[in-house]
Design a protein around this nucleic acid. Structure first.
Length: 111
DNA sequence: ATGGTGACGACGG
DNA sequence: ACCGTCGCCACCA
């Protein structure tokens, strides 16, 4: 099982309206990868992978480094899914970070 | 096989 | 809070 497939598979399980960070993917997917690896894999991922739902740990749109246009596209895609953005232009991670059935709200901040 | 690169992340100044 | 640096390790040439 290549790391790439594990990462892609995990990202596909992220529901619309939620986002995850690269580090989160690296930590949760069933593969010994780091956040940076996830980024590289996302750089050239299959069409069936919802890459737009993977953002930086602080809510930044990572592809912003590649230019304003791609970033705007990602933002539109996320807004279409109901994702709200902060004045900074970042995703509100506290509200939209995906938590696969985490009991007790380990990451829960009660909004 | 080797080396440089990078859709990241944590730390230090 | 903002910016630079270092570490990370699979990917690609």
């Amino acid at each position: 099982m290549e790391a790439a497939l594990a990462v892609y598979g995990f990202v596909k399980t992220v529901p619309a309206g939620s986002v995850v960070s690269y580090g989160q993917v690296a930590d949760m997917c069933d593969a010994p990868v780091t956040a940076r690896i996830v980024g590289q894999l996302m750089a050239s991922c299959p069409d069936d992978v919802p890459w737009q739902r993977v953002v930086g740990a602080d809510g930044r749109l990572p592809i912003a480094r590649r230019g304003a246009e791609p970033a705007a596209m990602q933002r539109r895609l996320l807004e279409r899914e109901g994702i709200g953005f902060l004045p900074d232009g970042r995703v509100d991670m506290n509200r939209y970070r995906w938590m696969p059935e985490e009991p007790g709200g380990l990451f829960a901040d009660g909004n």
